Computed example of a mutant assay.
Amino acid sequence: MEKTNILVLADHAEILETIIRLINKNESWNGVGVNSYENAAAAFKLDKFDLVLLGVGVNDAVEQQVFELCKSIDQRIVCMRHYGGGSGLLHSEICHALGL
């Protein structure tokens, strides 16, 4: 079974690390973390992503850039804000975004 690839963009290193760790605890998901729009764009050149989560420190301008990037690559990529909270909320957000 192919894993769901999830890209997380956040500029707070410890929070980004925690989100990626929680995502990768699920055997069906593969989380990749980046801390800038430029790194997100570079990640898309290396891999295909099904979901992009925008976390801590991502401002409105960068959010818009990421939405446009996702739309230009594949209209099916889900791109959404991650608002924080425990692992249960993260799991729920991802499942909801993926229609699970």
Score class of each variant (00 low, 15 high):
W29M: 03
N5C: 05
D60I: 14
Y37C: 07
K25G: 11
T18E: 01
L53Y: 12
G31W: 08
C79I: 00
S28L: 12
Y83M: 05
V8Y: 15
H96D: 13
I15G: 03
S28P: 04
V52Y: 15
L89Y: 08
Q65T: 01
A41I: 01
L53N: 13
E68T: 07
S36I: 04
V34S: 10
R21S: 03
Q75I: 08
L69E: 00
E68H: 06
L100N: 12
K25V: 10
S92T: 04
L98A: 02
F49L: 01
S92M: 08
D11E: 06
K48R: 13
V52R: 14
F67K: 11
S72P: 03
V34F: 02
D47S: 13
I73E: 10
E68K: 13
E93N: 07
L53V: 13
V58D: 13
V62Q: 11
G85T: 08
K71F: 05
A10F: 07
R76S: 15
Q64R: 14
S28T: 06
K45H: 08
G88E: 13
M80N: 09
I19H: 09
G99R: 05
I94H: 08
S87T: 11
R21E: 08
S36T: 04
A40F: 03
G84K: 05
E27K: 13
I94K: 01
L51T: 01
K3Y: 02
Q75R: 11
L90A: 11
A42M: 07
L46N: 15
Q64C: 10
A41C: 04
N35Y: 10
L7S: 12
H91I: 01
K3L: 00
E2P: 04
V52W: 15
I23L: 12
S92A: 11
A97Y: 06
E93S: 03
A13S: 04
V78F: 10
F67A: 05
Y37V: 02
D11A: 05
K71W: 07
A97N: 02
F44C: 14
A43Y: 13
I23M: 05
C95D: 05
K25A: 09
S92G: 03
L9H: 08
V32K: 00
N24T: 09
G57N: 07
I73M: 10
E38G: 13
N30E: 10
K48V: 02
N5G: 05
L16D: 06
R21F: 04
A13G: 00
L69R: 01
V62C: 06
V32A: 05
S36P: 03
A42Q: 10
V58S: 11
I20H: 04
H82F: 15
V56R: 15
L69A: 06
D74P: 07
T4G: 00
F44E: 10
K48M: 02
E17K: 14
I6C: 01
N30M: 11
F49T: 00
I94G: 07
D50F: 00
A42P: 01
